[in-house]
Amino acid sequence: MPILDKIAAAKKIDELLRGVVTHGGLRLKYRITVNPPLVEERDWERPEILVELSGPDSPLLLERGGELLRGLELLAIEMLRLSGNEHEKICFDCMHQRALRIEELRMAASVAAEKVRSSGVPYAFAPMSSRERRVVHLALRDHADLRTESRGEGPRRCLVVYPKSSQTTAARTAPKTIP
């Protein structure tokens, strides 16, 4: 279901970020785009509102794997009362961190695929958000000899790569972990 009133949603995001800049004192600029053009090779990702942040305090947003950037995105999502399957309609980015992180995840996926292929042993990634797990799932979906599954709950939920032939999850095998 699309966001019903995207302009009103964009205004709410603007209010949040104006507060962050004026009251929080962070030196940031931002641009909010409704219905942004799709990024090539990321056509499975279709945000309806894209927020691009920049400015001298960008490093504060990007520390610890973009913790504050993701935090601001989450605050916006919660303020707009979006349900779980609508979270991807809002995307916050800064200095192309999103594209870089996706590239990093794809490379990690391809390393994991090779390890599982050569060893026959399942491989578990460190816990990741649902969005990031999705990137890895999609990166490996065309590998006919492998399959991916998420397991664990909440913040510990992680993605595991299995050889296609291996039995389902369970705790029978202890997968290796990529930190």
């Binding site: 929080g24 030196r27 504050l68 989450l74 919660e78 909440g154």
Partner: peptide
């Protein structure tokens, strides 16, 4: 519950924002 968020994620987001504002101030 709305302020805490699932697994405390909303409260954590507010705290990381306060942390950044603190660094600036």
């Amino acid at each position: 519950g709305k302020i805490l968020g699932r697994q405390g994620r909303v409260a954590r987001a507010m705290r990381s924002l306060l942390n950044a504002a603190g660094i600036r101030a």
